[in-house]
Design a binder for these strands. Structure first.
Lengths: 220, 220
DNA sequence: TTATATTTGTGAATCAATTCACATTCATTA
DNA sequence: TAATGAATGTGAATTGATTCACAAATATAA
């Protein structure tokens, strides 16, 4: 897979759809379904069968003609591609509204994203316990990130301080950052930064209600 | 604008970028910047100037040749397009981890999304106060949604019950739903449904770390 | 064992989004 | 007031993503 993906350039949309397939396959696996066709996957995700097959074909051929894809096996393979076949050490910075929610978000753990450290700068929060993790002082950020071999950092601090925090996170050698603060962050070329913009979809709904209401909705 | 957008089909990406421009223009406005060029907007959002101009051109011509775009005016116009020039009545269903975070999320209010009602089915939560809003019993969902003229519903309940809730929400005549539950929901054609998949970006990071690490990161 | 029905995997074709490139417009300066 | 420079707005060109359509492979039924 690794060589495949460096050969061709895989689009962001394809990766996002792999996430969808992975989640759906987990459901099908629970339902003890043995095989599934691109047609069925497509119907359940509101895509075309060709789209599903094309997405998968970038990474190999996982199906059996005349039969479809083996549910468990395909789930396992997509898990491999997405890096969900391993555990990730995650640190969370900022334990306000959103930070607290993320600590308790079961879906992350289930996928192998383990929050190992929590940081904050508020003395009232430092030392407090969140789901078994003691909140550390942001002052020790770099040292702690290194010592605990953190691989992914989640930013959930106010927009005003996010850039300073990220600068320190980058200094600590972190190469993957998920940002919940509503602000554009600058990172070096070799750091992966993704933004979770919680207002964006709400704004899309607002746009849709105001502009697109000629009768029917347009879903993703 | 309304007629423009029904003439041509505006892509989802364009709308998402309008959200980005809007946020950036708010910053520029605070910095008392009078005008801004497509070049500068593009640089700050890691886009091309042509992309910025094309996006805006779908909705009209807001700039002055030789000068650029007037910051406040453009912000106002994009606000209009996105429906952020008005207040929206929002109901939140499910006040667990994520629901609680959303109640306190300032960014929503700032954009005119006002959480007016909160529902839950847990007797321990019903009647409790969240930022001045008393949690209502999910049993009265339909009645309350109608009486309070709710326009947008945010779903933050466990995946297992989300579809049942959504069915009731649709029955209440709601046409716009934002779903945080990690599950594919079915709604009629005339209802706008958007999904906020919190794991997706984390999975993208995971994918990037495993597959794309030939030195440099690829940011959005 | 053969015939028929399915369904994959994938080049080719189509459709959509992005970028190019430039005429046009306006601000500014001499 | 004319000349210069800057930046928009937009068709055309390009690039990228999606869908088509079909040969190949396999399952299943006769």
């Amino acid at each position: 897979m690794i060589s495949e993906s460096s050969k061709r350039r895989i689009s962001e949309s394809t990766i996002h759809r792999l996430s969808l397939y992975y989640r759906l396959l987990s459901v099908l696996e629970k339902e003890s379904k043995e095989t599934v066709s691109s047609k069925e996957l497509a119907e359940r995700e509101k895509l075309t069968p060709a789209q599903v097959r094309k997405d998968l074909s970038f990474f190999g051929s996982f199906g059996t003609r005349g039969l479809g894809y083996p549910v468990s096996e395909l789930k396992r393979r997509i898990g491999e591609i997405l890096g969900l076949d391993r555990q990730w050490s995650v640190a969370l910075i900022g334990v306000g509204n959103i930070g607290s929610a993320l600590v308790g978000y079961k879906e992350f753990q289930r996928q192998g994203f383990n929050i190992k450290l929590i940081f904050d700068n508020d003395q009232r929060k430092i030392g407090s316990n969140h789901k078994g993790i003691v909140v550390a002082d942001i002052k020790n950020l770099e040292k702690e990130l290194r010592e605990n071999k953190i691989e992914i950092v989640v930013i959930a601090v106010p927009a005003t301080v996010a850039q300073y925090i990220v600068d320190d996170v980058v200094k600590a050698g972190i190469k993957a950052i998920l940002n919940f603060a509503p602000v554009n962050l600058k990172v070096p070329e070799d750091v992966f930064l993704r933004n979770e913009n919680m207002s964006m979809e709400l704004e899309y709904l607002s746009f849709a209600l105001v502009n697109l209401f000629n009768g029917r909705g347009t879903n993703r």
